[in-house]
């Protein structure tokens, strides 16, 4: 790490620190009633208590499960569909307009449909999360497959590579930067929708924890849940970024 990077890291920690300090100050001065706003000290205590004596760990695992299953399903389906559409000019011409119509549709609009069809079940949650998370992945994959250098396909033809080898060794690696960027975007979508589904369907998870804490005016528990959600988003996103950096090491090799 060079000096500039260290300075940036120090600066970002300072900003976060002063944010927490300001929060503590506001709580201590009782600018907002403690019923609604606990200080970071109380939120932290609630977090520790939730893990040691409560079932916060179980809720966290519940949310992680919803998120992971939905995200993985979206990734598999999104990459497969995106590859199918993106690698064929004809498919792109036929399907692209429908995608443009479906894409801006807010996912919240299909939640009632999903509930009507699947009930307040895990299946409904999986469907909604996957449906919302598939778009960034699929669109990025379509773009990635459409943008493969045509010269590389000619190289593949002159080597008489099989269709499977062309997809696995040329098209997929070429589209991988786009695909991974799409997967990182949809991670956030999956987390948001996991919480929404847990709140709506009362499924085991942080969404339900937050909702119940709010209803009972346990603001410290509520904040503990919110902090945990933020941390989940942050950590999972960093994990995907690390995988991304590893897989795309060739992109930074020259720079």
């Amino acid at each position: 790490m060079n000096r500039a990077a260290i300075l940036w890291r120090v600066a970002s920690i300072l900003v976060a620190g002063s944010f927490v300090a300001a929060w503590q100050l506001i709580a201590d001065l009782r600018l907002v009633s403690p019923v609604f706003l606990p200080g970071p000290d109380r939120a932290w205590a609630a977090l520790v208590r939730g893990f040691s004596s409560g079932d916060l760990a179980g809720k966290l695992i519940g949310t992680l499960e919803h998120m992971a299953y939905g995200w993985l399903a979206a990734s598999i389906a999104g990459i497969a569909l995106g590859a199918l559409i993106g690698s064929s000019k004809v498919m792109r011409a036929y399907v692209a307009p429908s995608l443009e119509f479906l894409r801006p549709l807010p996912v919240s609009a299909i939640i009632p449909v999903a509930i009507a069809m699947l009930g307040l079940t895990q299946g409904m949650a999986l469907f909604v999360i996957a449906f919302g998370a598939i778009w960034p992945i699929m669109l990025a994959t379509i773009h990635g497959f459409a943008a493969v250098e045509p010269r590389l396909y000619e190289v593949a033809r002159s080597l008489q590579m099989s269709r499977a080898a062309i997809i696995g060794k040329i098209a997929l690696p070429s589209a991988l930067p786009d695909i991974l960027a799409g997967m990182r975007l949809s991670l956030t979508v999956a987390l948001i929708l996991s919480v929404v589904c847990e709140i709506l369907a009362g499924l085991d998870g942080l969404g339900q924890w937050v909702l119940l804490s709010a209803r009972a005016f346990r603001s410290a528990d509520l904040f503990a849940g919110v902090i945990l959600l933020g941390a989940t988003g942050y950590v999972t996103s960093i994990a995907v970024s690390l995988v991304e950096q590893r897989l795309l090491a060739w992109q930074t090799a020259a720079r």
């Binding site: 250098e149 033809r157 002159s158 008489q160 040329i170 070429s174 992109q251």
Partner: peptide, 21 residues
């Protein structure tokens, strides 16, 4: 169709190589 015993050297070597390999 192209055959393996006939190799093609393209002018734009930058595009003909796989940058990730």
């Amino acid at each position: 169709a192209p055959r393996r015993e006939v190799a093609i050297v393209f002018q734009d070597y930058g595009k003909a190589l796989l940058p990730w390999r």
